[in-house]
Amino acid sequence: MKATDDAQHRGPATIPWLRAELLEGRMETRTARSLVFDVPGWAGHHAGQHVDVKLTSEDGYSAQRSYSIASASASGQLELTVQVVSHGELSPYLVEVMSPGDELELRGPIGGWFRWTEEFTEPVLLVGGGSGIVPLMAILRERIRTGSTAPVHFICVARTPDHVFYTNELHSVDQSHADVLVDRLYTRSGLADDARAAGRLNLHDLPPPSSGDTGITRAYVCGPTGFVESAADLLLGRGHPPTAIRTERFGPTGG
């Protein structure tokens, strides 16, 4: 068996690096951009997973970072949303410079823990802070793509309305799907007619877990470390069992 021989010579099978060409980009906020890539050989992914992105300069120096996938699963294509990190190595290029037709390398999909598939029929609670809503958006998009009937409650926490990604899409999904509820919560300043005063996420912002026939709510929390720790504590305080809460955190080392 030639394939086996090859595998033995190369050692354990690793996730291969693939070439990805930027098809289009669009700004989500003043400092965040969604990038759609054409990736020959990409077989699709589970919502919530991420990719490692590698850029190599002409002198051979390469920088590598991981970014959550924002899109629903598709073969040959994926979308990332990248927030600029000051003095970051990759994000300023991805957000401000990279043009359609430019290429980079990526590998994935990575991560089997923080993921959602249509096989999960329980209600879903998504709690995202800042750019932490990216993998949660993938879950929402996958839920809609697959026609799953799992109820989704998506809580997006941002500094101000200007900091929310996917504004139009979230609004239209919220309006057109009876079993999808989208809450936008602001920590610094909100809209004039908001019933909720701007401020940090608190216990009253979060629903209790569902129970009974639908199964226990699956909660996914993603954001900066401090946000994730406090949101996870609040969910526990709200009665969500620890085993039903999955978290993903990122720190200022991103970029």
Binding site: S66, T225, G226, T247, E248, R249, F250, G251, P252, T253
Partner: peptide, 9 residues
């Protein structure tokens, strides 16, 4: 853990 990420990364 201000400068930390998690195992996903």
């Amino acid at each position: 853990h201000e400068f930390a990420v998690d195992g996903n990364a």
